[in-house]
Design a protein around this nucleic acid. Structure first.
Lengths: 233, 233
DNA sequence: ACCTGAACACCGTTCAAGT
DNA sequence: ACCTGAACACCGTTCAAGT
């Protein structure tokens, strides 16, 4: 065929097809050759649009991160930080859970991905606007990320095999663990909500009165030792 | 060579070499062929000891999980749950952080792995012994796991590229984010400790008085709807 | 500029053959 | 029982060739 007069591919089409392939058949099913076949082209064609498979994955990942709602961070001044951080964590988790096979790839940090950086910027800026010291805002953003990623990465309940024999014999307290697989969604969501509530409540207790933000140019994440109260060692 | 009179390989040697290869060169460097080369044999030899690469990875993963200290769960009756859950979470994270390239593989649930099930059994049994209802114990075990895995899986601070240009121009609050890479360890550990303290404190406030355990056979994880107080929706 | 097939250096896994 | 080399069906990526 050689070069058609209308391009067969675009970055958008490739990313959409890759996401669908990962969602339906898993991360290992996403090879450049299979992806190209789905798109009706030959394998090397993809390299006209992405330099490497890794850059392609970056684009797929950033697409998913772009689905996270960040609008709640705009109203931090009037609403405080607890409501926004809770709503943001739920939206973040929902975006990841919609594409569970991608979570290990997502977990590699914001790097240079536009939507990932937009997210980090909104969260950090929102926490600082709410009155948190920069070191605290950095830590809170990080620890919320830990919790959200952990909750999306591999279901807890789904990780138990649905086979009673394995558990009952050897592990005295796991006699009904095989039932967890059935209730996977409710257990995972219940654990997430319980932990989210505990985190926000615990942070409120540790740091009861975040300072009002200082006027002037926006603060940036502190890389220096934290200035707020430290957790107990 | 064919069959030597003393076997060249053993499951233990293979697992140890695989773990070292993953630690030093990353997950993608662990191919059956490279692993075999390190061990001084040809690729297919491994299949005399493991049926598939996946089962080999299971053994590697379980070795790492076996490093987690569980002894604190024995003294729950006298010490309460908060100290043990904190000590356990720290030991768990330390075991994962020692092998960061393996965390995405570790995150796939206990499955049928002996040490992973032993861990789940000890944690669930300890929480129930401390007086938690079974549904609560299940959720607490799950949410702690979320937090520990998230904190080990991809550093928050290390995820930012060490390149000021990228951040300053586009993202108003990330002007110093590039410095995070330098302080990776202290930021990650500070965030972990802050979150851990908040979680334990938040759980204590939500459920101030866990019931004493009922006598009789050990309880099992409840797959039924949780019986304790629910988090706010 | 954008696609192709051929080619390179890899994979995981199977299997007959050797001792 | 435990190792070998050959082989199969895959990979990601490069590249000259086509329009």
């Amino acid at each position: 065929m050689a070069r058609p007069r209308n391009p067969l591919l675009s970055r958008e089409r490739i990313v959409a097809a890759a996401l669908e392939l990962v969602d339906t058949e898993g991360l290992t099913a996403l090879s450049t050759r299979r992806l190209a076949a789905v798109l009706g082209v030959s394998g090397p064609s993809l390299y006209n649009h992405f330099a490497t498979k890794e850059q392609l994955m970056d684009a797929v990942v950033d697409e998913v991160v772009g689905e996270v709602d960040l609008s709640m961070w705009e109203s931090v001044d009037t609403d405080g930080w607890a409501g926004p951080v809770t709503a943001w964590a739920r939206s973040y988790r929902a975006a990841l859970v919609a594409h569970p096979n991608l979570v290990p790839v997502l977990a590699q940090g914001p790097g240079r991905r536009a939507n990932s950086l937009r997210l980090a910027d909104a969260v950090f800026g929102g926490l600082v606007d709410a009155g948190w010291a920069r070191g605290d805002a950095t830590r809170i953003g990080a620890l919320m990320r830990y919790f959200v990623y952990g909750s999306a990465l591999g279901s807890f309940a789904g990780g138990f095999v649905d086979d009673q024999e394995i558990y009952a014999a050897e592990y005295p307290h796991l006699g009904q663990a095989h039932l967890l697989a059935e209730h996977r969604r409710s257990v995972d969501e219940g654990a997430f909500e319980t932990g989210l509530t505990a985190l926000v409540e615990g942070l409120s207790r540790q740091y009861p009165h975040p300072r009002r933000p200082t006027p002037g140019p926006s603060a940036a994440p502190s890389a220096a030792p934290p200035t707020g109260p430290r957790p107990r060692p």
